[in-house]
Write a protein that binds this DNA or RNA. Structure first.
Lengths: 256, 256
DNA sequence: AAGTGGTCTAGACCACCAT
DNA sequence: TGGTGGTCTAGACCACTTA
């Protein structure tokens, strides 16, 4: 009886006929609570023992579910203290989302300077990539990132307005933390991973001017999609980088 | 007695005074066997039950060690069949080491064309990055990669000759598989991960010619270090990519 | 049918943190 | 001291592959 209980409840609560691991279902239920905002950024979840009792699974199964969420950097474990919802702070940004480093390889956090904040409508491509309707309202942001005072990155951000209804230039400008932190804390939108597509281009005049480059200089274009739970897109960002004294570091695989 | 046995043997066999998890030590011992070539590319390891007995640990601890090696793509589990040393085949290359994709986002495997094979001595920078002596012998390879018949990538490879003593142009040219597969099967050098640093540049005339580009065209430079166990460097590769119709895909984090 | 990895459980004990 | 996560063990049963 006791041995089969977990599997029975799994099949029941999943409402499925297929064989599906119990820990995956537990993971989905934790994810759902996170999406619903049941535990907010930086808050502690109930202890593993409590969660296991709540889900009616063994502690080992509960841990396996949490293990994966920790791996994905959605949760953070701290021995002796608890398990927390990962916060978008500077160090997380620096290590997982900002890939521009100096020639010495050192990671520095950039300062940000807003160039333009406007609203518009999604064109065909943006709509498709954000999975919204063509012509739906979007927010457009142009932003320069500086490293040691020098402009290095020009960001062009496209956001679906529906999810960030009240976002204004003032709110954006007055944020005290990273942009992803703003999405997370104010709108409950948690960016979990990004997919970047890179090319080399000759910069156009406007971009060159924003980066203090000569006409015809090469720049690195980064076409980024930011994703939240279940790979749902939440932000498009097209960036241009002056790679004369910096480079983009792609260091996959060091996840152990 | 039975509960403490594992931890005791851990401390003993690690020969350390510090607290060190038993599964980490098991992982190191498996890694060591892999480095020593005890199980070769594509071969099956002993079953988990056998390994656990051999290391005198529980099956759970053994699995935790193997879990990490599977995550790092060093080992591959196949339910019902066994656990195998991961092979450098085309699909592994395509998904984990070759990041150039077409505008449609589809991954295609490139054809390779050798331009030059020579021997030389390591300059200061190469020596430092390969952790060999300045002036030590190296092998230099220039290679063009074509996608659908068009040259897209120019590779300039630097290899420490000491580890690949007998490598000749003929052997390199006649390989039947990927370059990393050659290192793995012929020299027991297993590339596990790579670190890429990217910039945008104006191509020099030689590079432009090799890629069929006009003078002054922008190209994406990829400065790659390939690493084996314990992050030991085994290859340097400086590549130039025509990103007019392709891009570099950086898709970290989809490891779940 | 026999052997392999995959899941799940139950319980002990350790390391670390806050109080 | 009590609560948290971290490690380790032991054993049952399931899913899949091969012969």
């Amino acid at each position: 009886m006791s041995g089969d209980e977990g599997q029975m409840s799994s099949a029941l609560s999943a409402g499925a006929f297929t064989q599906y691991p119990l820990y995956k279902e537990v993971k989905l239920r934790i994810t759902k609570s996170l999406m619903d905002g049941q535990w907010k950024s930086g808050e502690a979840l109930p202890s593993e023992a409590q969660l296991a009792r709540g889900f009616n699974v063994s502690i080992g199964t509960l841990r396996k579910a949490v293990d994966e969420l920790v791996q994905e950097k959605v949760l953070v474990r701290q021995q002796g203290r608890g398990t927390f919802v990962a916060t978008h702070n500077e160090s997380r940004t620096l290590y997982y989302f900002f890939h521009i480093v100096g020639e010495d390889g050192v990671r520095r956090f950039p300062t940000s300077e807003l160039l333009a904040f406007s609203r518009g409508k999604a064109d065909t491509l943006s709509a498709q990539r954000l999975r919204i309707g063509r012509g739906d309202k979007v927010i457009l942001i142009r932003n320069v990132l500086k490293l040691e005072g020098e402009p290095v990155v020009l960001d062009n951000i496209t956001l679906p307005a529906a999810q960030l209804g009240d976002l204004t230039e003032r709110i954006f400008r007055n944020r005290e933390n990273t942009i992803y932190n703003l999405y997370q804390t104010r709108y409950g939108i948690n960016v979990i991973r990004t997919v970047d597509r890179l090319r080399a281009l000759i910069s156009d005049d406007k971009t060159a001017a924003a980066l203090g480059l000569q006409r015809g200089s090469p720049v690195l274009e980064i076409d980024r999609t930011a994703l939240t739970y279940h790979d749902a897109p939440v932000e498009l960002r097209r960036s241009y980088v002056n790679t004369a004294h910096h480079h983009y570091l792609s260091d996959l695989g060091k996840y152990y």
